[in-house]
Every structure is written in structure tokens, then in C-alpha cells.
Computed example of a mutant assay.
Amino acid sequence: MSTNKSLLTILIVVLAVAPTVEGGPALAVGCVAACNAGAVACYASAGLVFGTITAGVGTPIAAVLCNLAQGTCMAACAASVIAPTP
């Protein structure tokens, strides 16, 4: 894996496990946009095009992992928006 692909993979992992959003809908939109940008980068690092893969037996494992990371990132965005603030 090239350095660029490695960095993009690290980016999607970081986005998946560490998004924090406090401050309302505008920042939530930014968080979701970052998740989507990370997913596109993750697909690209695997030589795939985001949005062109359908689920099934032949789905590349890289696409599955990118999708899982994006889902985790989106869940963290949603949780940070709906979580009560002290």
C-alpha cells in the first residue's frame, strides 16, 4: 500500500472513531460531510469508486470496511448532536 493510500486509510479510521460535534446543526452537517469525504477517500485508496459497489457475495472487503467506518463515523455525529449537554 502506498503512503497516500495508508494516510487515507488512517484518515477514515480517525474520522470513524473521533468525531466530536457540539454547537448545533451547522457543525453536525460538517461532521457528516467529513464522514462522507472520508468514505470517498477510503474507497479511492482501495482503487474503488464510492457509490458504484452493490452489496453481495462479490463485494470487495475494502468496500465493506469503508462502509463500516463511515457508519461508525455517522453514528458518532448523530450521538454528539442528540446527546444532552451539561
Score class of each variant (00 low, 15 high):
residue 29 V to F: 11
residue 55 A to V: 09
residue 67 N to F: 01
residue 11 L to D: 13
residue 41 A to S: 14
residue 6 S to P: 14
residue 42 C to W: 11
residue 31 C to T: 01
residue 51 G to E: 05
residue 63 A to S: 07
residue 81 V to D: 03
residue 61 I to N: 06
residue 44 A to Y: 09
residue 1 M to W: 14
residue 39 A to P: 11
residue 13 V to R: 15
residue 57 V to Y: 14
residue 7 L to P: 12
residue 2 S to E: 11
residue 14 V to G: 00
residue 9 T to N: 14
residue 67 N to E: 03
residue 63 A to I: 00
residue 3 T to L: 09
residue 11 L to Q: 03
residue 59 T to W: 07
residue 67 N to H: 03
residue 48 L to T: 05
residue 6 S to V: 14
residue 36 N to A: 14
residue 33 A to T: 11
residue 19 P to K: 03
residue 60 P to C: 07
residue 20 T to L: 15
residue 46 A to G: 14
residue 13 V to H: 08
residue 46 A to H: 06
residue 69 A to Q: 00
residue 24 G to T: 01
residue 40 V to F: 03
residue 11 L to Y: 15
residue 72 T to K: 11
residue 72 T to W: 05
residue 83 A to K: 00
residue 26 A to Q: 05
residue 4 N to Q: 10
residue 67 N to G: 06
residue 31 C to V: 13
residue 1 M to C: 09
residue 51 G to C: 07
residue 81 V to L: 06
residue 31 C to W: 07
residue 68 L to S: 02
residue 39 A to Q: 02
residue 20 T to N: 13
residue 28 A to G: 12
residue 72 T to E: 12
residue 15 L to K: 13
residue 57 V to H: 13
residue 74 M to H: 11
residue 67 N to Y: 05
residue 50 F to N: 09
residue 83 A to P: 00
residue 49 V to H: 10
residue 82 I to T: 05
residue 58 G to D: 07
residue 86 P to H: 02
residue 37 A to Y: 05
residue 69 A to C: 02
residue 16 A to I: 00
residue 73 C to V: 02
residue 68 L to Y: 01
residue 51 G to L: 09
residue 18 A to K: 03
residue 45 S to C: 11
